[in-house]
Amino acid sequence: MNTAFLTVYWRDMIRFRRFKPMLFSTLVQPILWMAFFGIGMSSNFDRFSQFVKLPPGIESVDYLTFMAAGVIAMTTLFTSLFGGISLLFDKRWGIMKEMLASPMPRTHILWGISLSGVTKALIQAALIMSFGLLIGVKFFSGYSAVEVLISLLGIAIFVTVFSLGFLFLSAGITMRLESMEGVQGIMTLLTMPLFFSSSALYPVEGFPSWLRAISVVNPLTYLVKGIRYFAIGEDFFAMGTHYTYSIYDVLLSLGFLTIFALLTYLFAWVTFRRACPGEGFGD
């Protein structure tokens, strides 16, 4: 088997470790979100949701726990959307030419970059969960050891599939563009609507119908659903809303994310097959 994608992965991880400011911000940013936004907002939201009547004997999940799942999802989104950007550096330094002139299949560039993007996303997710548990996020409460393991695996699968979807998209877009500004512009344009039309930080139940319609096709919604199912449970109250997830919901969500990833893969694949370094860049 040709393992060139592992080489691309190897190099990208070296760069990840070596760029200290980048490494630092990748690791610290999600923690800052938890520490400032999470703790700040949770004291507010928890005060409001006290007034919501809940069925007797049921306790609401606190906001910090609710949003921790959202922060994992959001971080995964950012990391994945910007994951393709290293391709831009490869183009600029010409390494892309080196790779395209080699006998390595072109799709391996895509795979290698995506694999390293997934690795980063998983590291971040693990970090957010660890830090979260430290500051009082009640993930996996009442779970047995086996259940915790299964849940971790479930979360990892969701994060991976979702991350791949956006990495492929990001790689495909980056491969077609020339400038950092262009790539960053597009990515920022994509993040906003994706992020705010999802249930990452608040329930979508209160949205007007058009916004809810967007949230139904928003992959982020399904990632958040998957994480909450595994981390919090299948039946809980949060922010005055009753959440129930059946295993079918979860499988359906995973199915949606898988289809999304397949579509973006197709887009990236077409782009990479056509990639022609002599035409668009270089001398």
């Binding site: 190099r11 070296i14 760069r15 070596r18 330094w93 010409g94 390494i95 030419k97 002139a101 001398d283």
Partner: peptide, 15 residues
């Protein structure tokens, strides 16, 4: 079958 040395420098300075 080939090796190439490009006109522009093709190196990753961080490796």
């Amino acid at each position: 079958s080939i090796g190439i040395v490009f006109q522009d420098e093709v190196l990753d300075g961080d490796l």
